[in-house]
């Protein structure tokens, strides 16, 4: 396989990935997954004993739910909706980077006020990814609403 064929294959795969979208019905599926996982996260607070992996599973399922909604089509998909979606991903990426840079220090400052000994600069992958997904969904819905 020559270099040219490899480039062409790469381009085809990138195009397929860019166009990948789930059917519109998956918006409901994603929402259901996220809500069930969130309820599970709350419910574990009332359990006397529970394995450690349940919290991790619930957090990951919330991310899966949000991602599923993000990848789902709207009722009508056209070039304008695709542009709005692309713009919302741009915003989410930029705000996500800013959030990861700034938020740990804000948390540290707040924690320091209440408990100086235990305050530390930290950021979990869940916070970063959940923030980006929520910002993307929010901006996309706002953009859609603005042109209705």
């Amino acid at each position: 396989m020559g270099l040219k064929e490899i480039y062409q294959w790469d381009r085809r795969m990138a195009e397929k990935l860019r166009r990948f979208q789930l059917p519109q019905s998956y918006q409901t599926v994603g929402l259901a997954i996220a809500i069930i996982a969130f309820v599970g996260l709350i419910a574990r607070k009332f359990m006397t004993t529970e394995p450690d992996w349940i919290r991790s599973l619930c957090l990951n399922l919330i991310l899966v739910g949000l991602l599923t909604i993000s990848l789902s089509k709207e009722k009508v998909e056209d070039e304008y909706i695709a542009m709005l979606r692309s713009r919302s991903y741009q915003f989410a990426f930029i705000m996500g980077v800013l959030y990861v840079l700034i938020q740990p220090y804000v948390t540290y400052a707040v924690e320091y006020l209440f408990n100086p000994e235990e305050a530390e600069v930290q950021m979990s992958y869940f916070q970063a990814i959940a923030f980006m997904l929520m910002v993307q969904l929010l901006f996309f819905k706002v953009f859609l609403k603005k042109c209705s």
Binding site: K75, D78, Y80, I81, M83, L144, C147
Partner: peptide, 19 residues
């Protein structure tokens, strides 16, 4: 023409230049 109503609305308001 196979697009969303939002697309037509945005074109008419000058917010979007179609392909």
């Amino acid at each position: 023409i196979g697009v969303s109503r939002q697309t037509i609305s945005s074109i008419e308001k000058g917010r979007y230049v179609p392909s």
